Simulated assay, not measured.
Amino acid sequence: MALLPFQSGVSKDIATGVMATLVIFSVSVFMPVVGFVFSMFIPLPVLFYRAKLGRRLGIIVPLVAIAVMGVVLGGVTVDILFFSGLMFLGFAMSEMFEKELSVEMTVAGACGMVLGAGLIGILLYSLASNTGFFSLVSAYVATNLALSLDLYKGIGIPQETIDTISGSLDQIQYVLVRILPSLAVASTLFVAWTNLIAARPLMERRGLYFPDFGRLNCWRAPDPLVWGVIGCGLIMLLPATGLRLVGVNGLLVLLTIYFLQGIAIVSFYFEKKKLPRTIRVVLYMMIAFQQLFLLVIICIGLFDMWINFRKIDTDKHEPDLPS
């Protein structure tokens, strides 16, 4: 029996959503140089088609994509959990959109659901594979460090630099394993914010509902958050290694939030000065690949609380630094 037009349209949407997700996945896996950038947008098609098709039909897109990924990667792996988490982030963000919360609560709620589910998934995977949680994480970090080293060799990094990195792999692994919680939170926040910005014009153009968060380039972090930065900095001065790790992890997450505020300020002035899109892309790429620019953007976001670069919310009370 022929499909009804509605059924045919839904099937086409599901197929398109799955294909879009798998294309981004393929670029992420098989083109490692640009794959990292593409992988950040895996949540986007899931978010879009969850909003378009609803919860019951929208869930088919990530489920089918995960099944295909499992076939490509040869079963359930940590990488599958990673890509599944990215797809779940898109689904969770669409769910949060319907609750009409603030932008902070929307992003925090979606990230919380993904990180909680990811932690449970890794725990179950470690139990199923009879591998300790810490050992599993350490092995995953070591594997990715080795792959990164091979990538550096392939793109022509000087041999002296390769030898230096190779001789420091154990120390790098030691540090990465211990700051992995903050890296997971920070990267999830960044990916969620990036897809939030990317989804807005796409969904509005297709006539889909998008919450009225206002101009995101006018967004600023809650003022009391600066006390968290100060507190984490003080904790890092304590002699106890465990407490210092808490301070480092907390500081990395908070600085990511202030980086997002700094980027909002940069975007505000790009828009105000009406810079051409090409120039904006080049400048954003410079920010992404130059550590000094990253630090400058974080400082801009942090000091915006006192300097108020965009001259907005001028009557809002600004807390003082502790004496």
Rank of each mutant, 00 (worst) to 15 (best):
V23R: 10
G85H: 06
F134E: 13
L53C: 04
S135I: 08
P43R: 12
S39V: 07
G70T: 00
F36Q: 13
A65F: 05
D13P: 04
L251M: 15
G207C: 10
V177R: 05
V34T: 13
V248A: 11
M69H: 09
R200G: 05
Q7H: 07
S26E: 07
Y140T: 11
L73T: 01
K311C: 08
I122H: 09
L295E: 13
L321N: 12
G242W: 10
A65E: 02
I172V: 13
I179Q: 01
P322Y: 13
C111Q: 01
S148R: 07
I197D: 03
R310P: 05
E271T: 08
R244M: 12
M113R: 08
Y269S: 05
P201L: 01
M203W: 01
R178H: 09
S129V: 12
L283I: 12
L22V: 13
S267A: 14
P224D: 01
M93V: 11
V103F: 06
R178E: 03
L216N: 02
V37D: 07
G75E: 06
T16A: 14
P45N: 11
T143D: 12
F36I: 12
G207P: 06
R206I: 06
P43Q: 13
Q291M: 12
Y269K: 05
G75D: 07
V29C: 02
D170K: 13
L47C: 10
A288L: 14
L57V: 08
K153N: 12
G116P: 04
L127A: 13
D150N: 14
M203N: 03
L180R: 02
A51H: 07
F97C: 03
T314S: 06
G132T: 08
A15F: 15
W193K: 02
A186N: 00
A2F: 13
L57C: 10
I122G: 02
F6N: 08
K99T: 13
I157V: 15
P158F: 00
A240E: 15
G214P: 06
Q171E: 14
M1F: 10
L147S: 10
F88G: 03
R280W: 00
F48G: 02
V282T: 10
K12H: 10
F30D: 01
R200P: 01
R50D: 09
F270H: 09
V191H: 00
V37T: 15
V23I: 15
G262Y: 03
M87W: 10
G70L: 09
S102C: 02
G54W: 12
C299D: 03
L44M: 12
I120N: 01
L176C: 04
L275A: 07
Q291W: 14
G214A: 07
V76G: 01
